[in-house]
Amino acid sequence: MIRSVAIGAGVTAATVALAHTALAGYVARRLVAPRAPKVFAPVGIEGDTVSVPATDDSRQPGTYGLRLDDGSHVMVGDIVRVDGDRVVRSILERPTGLSDGDAVAAWTSQNIGAPEDVGPTRHVAVPLRRGGSAEAWEIGDRESANGRWTIHVHGLRSSRNGALRSAPATADAGWMSLIVSYAGDEECAPADALPSSLGTREWRDVDDAIAYAVAQGAREIVLVAWSMGGTIAMLAVEQSAHRDAIIGLVFVAPALDWTRVVENAVAGAHLPRTVAVASMRVLGSRVGARALGLVEAVDARALTWVGEHRSGPDLPTLILHSRVDPVVPFSGSVAYVERHPDAELVAFDATGHCNEANQEPERFHDAIAGFLRSLPRG
C-alpha cells in the first residue's frame, strides 16, 4: 500500500514536472515567435466614417490605421459609436480613389501611411555584415541636418511602419531620420524569418545602420528605439564600433529588463512565476534554442540594465512610457531612471502597448522634439 502510494506520488510529480516544462517551452516559443500574418477583416466605409470589427485594439482611443488588402492606408480617428460587434470610427485620411462600400483591411497602430507623409524620403539599402542588405527609409534634408541623425528601431513583431510614429518629431527638430529593418522582422527574406533573439542578434543589423549613417555624414546620432528596440539600442551602444557617435537615446516603452517582461507575461496568463524562470532557462540552453529554431541561445536574464550587474550608458536619455503598459512593465523604466541621472521619464496613461504616440500625440511629439533641441552641439 505504502509502496503503491509512493509510486503514485512519483508519477504525479513527474507528470507535474513535464507539464511545467511544457508550459515553459510554450511561453518561450510565444516570446520569440515570428510575427503572425496580418488579420484582414471586412470593413464598411461610408463618407467620413468606417465600421470595423469590435476588438480590444479597435476600441482603444486615439488615432490608428487600416491597411487595405491592396496595400493602401486609411488613417482613422475617434470612435463615433459602437454598434454591437462593430465599432464605427472617423476617417482622418483616406487614399485617393477609395470609394464608399465594403473593403477588407487589417487594423494597425501604424497611423502614418508612408514615410513620404513625414518628409522628403529616400528608399535605401543598408549593407549588412552578414551578407545582403536591409531596407531603410532616409527622411529629411542632409544639408540642413548638418550631421545630426536619428535612427529609429522598431520592436518585436513590428516593422518600420510602426517606428514612423517617432519620425515627425525628429524631422521637426531638424534631424535626419533613418527608419531601419533588421533580422527576423517581416521584411526579411523567408530564409531569414527566424524567431527573435530578443535583440542579441538583431543589434548587429542596427549597428550596420549606424555605420551607414556615419558613412553618409552623420556625426551625432540619437537612437530612437521602441519596445524590444530598447534592448537592441543598449547592445549597440555597448558594442558598436561607432558608439562614440551616439550622443543620446530616446526610448518608447523600452524592454530594459527581460525578467520583468517575461514575468509580466506569465502573470497575465495566470501561470506560476516559476514558469517564467523555466522559460528563460529554455531560451538560454542550447537544447532549448535548437528546439525553438534560434540561431543561438539567448540569456534573457542578462538582458537587463536596471540592476547592479549591467549599467546603462552615461548618455542623455528620454523615456516615454505608459504607466499601464500591459506588455513591458512601467516599473522597468522607473528603475532605470532611478539609477541614471541623465535619464528623464515622461509618463503617459495610454492604454495598450506602444500607443503613447496614438493617444497623446502632442505630448509625445513635443517631448522628443524638445529633447533633441536641448542636446548641445558636439
Rank of each mutant, 00 (worst) to 15 (best):
Met1Leu: 13
Arg3His: 13
Ala6Asp: 09
Gly8Ile: 06
Ala9Gly: 13
Thr12Gln: 11
His20Gln: 12
Ala22Gly: 14
Ala24Thr: 02
Ala24Asp: 02
Gly25Arg: 14
Arg30Ser: 15
Arg30Ala: 15
Lys38Arg: 15
Val39Ile: 13
Phe40Ser: 08
Glu46Met: 11
Glu46Ala: 14
Val50Asn: 00
Ser58Met: 06
Gln60Ile: 01
Gln60Pro: 01
Thr63Ile: 14
Leu66Cys: 09
Asp70Phe: 02
His73Gln: 07
Met75Arg: 15
Val82Phe: 10
Asp83His: 04
Arg86Gly: 03
Arg89Gln: 05
Ser90Ala: 15
Leu92His: 04
Pro95Phe: 05
Thr96Phe: 12
Thr96Leu: 14
Ala103Met: 07
Val104Tyr: 12
Ser109Glu: 13
Ala114Val: 12
Gly119Arg: 04
Val124His: 01
Ala125Asp: 11
Val126Ile: 10
Ser133Glu: 11
Ser133Asp: 09
Arg142Ser: 08
Glu143Met: 06
Asn146Pro: 01
Asn146Met: 05
Gly147Lys: 01
Trp149Phe: 05
Ile151Lys: 00
His154Val: 06
Gly155Leu: 00
Leu156Asn: 12
Ser166Gln: 08
Ala173His: 07
Gly174Ser: 07
Ile179Leu: 11
Cys188Asn: 15
Cys188Thr: 15
Ala191Gly: 10
Trp203Asn: 00
Asp205Val: 01
Val206Met: 05
Tyr212Met: 01
Ala213Gln: 00
Val214Lys: 02
Ala215Trp: 00
Glu220Ala: 12
Val222Phe: 00
Leu223Ile: 02
Val224Glu: 05
Val224Cys: 10
Gly230Leu: 05
Thr231Ala: 11
Ala236Cys: 13
Gln239Gly: 13
Ala241Gln: 11
Ala241Arg: 11
Asp244Asn: 10
Ala245Gln: 08
Leu249Trp: 00
Val252Trp: 00
Thr259Met: 10
Ala265Met: 14
Ala269Val: 10
Ala269Leu: 15
Thr274His: 09
Gly284Lys: 07
Gly284Pro: 08
Ser285Thr: 08
Arg286Lys: 13
Val298Gly: 01
Leu303Trp: 03
Glu308Ser: 12
Glu308Met: 07
Pro316Met: 03
His321Leu: 07
Arg323Ile: 07
Gly332Arg: 02
Ser333Asn: 07
Val334Leu: 08
Ala335Val: 06
Glu338Ala: 15
His340Gln: 08
His340Ala: 06
Asp342Ala: 14
Glu344Asn: 12
Glu344Ser: 14
Asp349Cys: 10
Ala357Phe: 09
His365Asn: 11
Asp366Thr: 15
Ala367Tyr: 05
Arg377Pro: 06
